[in-house]
């Protein structure tokens, strides 16, 4: 992608922006790094905790109708499977009893 920009667009318009962005990036990084270095383990854990909460806020949770349909489908599927397995098991138990018992 960067190659395409470099070859077609004017280099003046591309590079300064890039450079400032990089500088900004390094600045913020330095700042953050310094802060992290100074802070104790609890403060770092606090920061991590806040970041976890921030990420959790961005999570897309299923809405009510989705949740209901998925839940019913799973329950029906599981119930059907348990039913099938129970019937098979009952049959084999009787069979084994008949053969070995």
């Amino acid at each position: 992608m960067t190659e395409a920009i470099g070859s077609t667009a004017t280099p003046e318009s591309g590079r300064p922006a890039d450079a400032t962005e990089g500088a900004l990036d390094s600045q913020t990084k330095k700042k953050r790094g310094g802060k992290r270095g100074k802070k104790g383990p609890f403060a770092r854990m606090g920061l991590f905790y806040r970041q976890v909460i921030a990420e959790l806020r961005k999570v897309v949770w299923p809405n009510r109708s989705d949740l209901m349909s998925y839940t019913t489908v799973v329950i029906v599927f599981v119930a059907v499977m348990i039913g099938i397995v129970t019937v098979i098991d009952w049959g084999f138990t009787e069979l084994v009893k008949y053969v070995f018992g």
Binding site: M1, K58, V59, W61, L67, Y70
Partner: peptide
């Protein structure tokens, strides 16, 4: 059991979507 099934489905369906733009 049913309540737990509901809870598990709820979390199992939850996702964080990281947006991706294609050039």
């Amino acid at each position: 059991g049913l309540a737990m099934v509901c809870l598990v489905v709820f979390v199992e369906q939850a996702q964080r979507r990281i947006p991706v733009q294609y050039a």
